[in-house]
């Protein structure tokens, strides 16, 4: 079964695209062939939470609740330094490898 990562943003301009770019690039570098990265609106997240292939949520918005899967704040992809982005990608890769 594939591993689904959803990348959520608030609205409109799709800041999640910036996060999606970075995650997809790293996923390709790592050679993962079973990882799907999907951009969604944060308002639509409920529809994904029950999916058994969901392994992680990356959100550009602050999230004030918990999920059954790991959640990462994606803001470093938009405004972080290269080191901050790489550190976040390392954590994401760790989760992908574990499941």
């Amino acid at each position: 079964m594939s591993k689904l990562i959803v990348v959520a943003c608030g609205a409109g301009i799709n800041t999640s695209t910036i996060a999606e770019d970075s995650i997809k690039e790293r996923v390709a570098q790592e050679g993962f062939s079973d990882v799907e990265v999907k951009r969604i609106l944060i308002a639509d997240i409920e529809g994904f939470l029950g999916r058994t292939d969901l392994i992680m949520v990356v959100s550009m918005m602050k999230i004030f609740r918990t999920f059954d899967v790991p959640v990462f704040q994606g803001m470093p992809f938009l405004i972080g330094s290269k080191q901050e982005r790489d550190a976040l990608l390392d954590k994401i890769v760790e989760v992908i490898k574990k499941v």
Binding site: T17, I18, I79, K82
Partner: peptide
């Protein structure tokens, strides 16, 4: 302030700006 006729182009502008935002 962004004004874009096309969403794809808007994302590209944001990508270019984001390079500055992180520095």
């Amino acid at each position: 302030m962004l004004a874009n006729r096309d969403p794809q182009e808007q994302i590209q502008t944001l990508r270019n700006l984001a390079v500055l935002f992180g520095q």
